[in-house]
Amino acid sequence: MKELIEHIVKALVDNPDKVAVNEIDGEKSIIFELRVGEGDLGKVIGKEGRTAKAIRTILTAAAMKQGKRTVLEIIE
């Protein structure tokens, strides 16, 4: 899943080198920390938060198979 976030976000932003994903695996939930370069935050969030919402929904669906919850934090 980490790979997926990285790939999607790198395709969307201006500075792909500054994209970093950190995965914190818990017992019942997985937390992803997504770091993007300056000025790219808006691109990841998208119009009215559509892109961020879409990524979160897909992560939730993927984690549902393992019976876990996911949290995606986007940090500039």
Binding site: I8, T51, A54, T57, I58, M64
Partner: peptide, 27 residues
């Protein structure tokens, strides 16, 4: 057996898939 997960509640996950795939292809 996992179609239901991919569709989601009221087609929510399907909508997300649609959005992301078309966004990535649009490049």
């Amino acid at each position: 057996h996992t179609d239901a997960i991919l569709i989601g509640k009221k087609g929510e996950t399907l909508w997300s898939l649609q959005y992301l795939i078309s966004r990535l292809m649009k490049r």
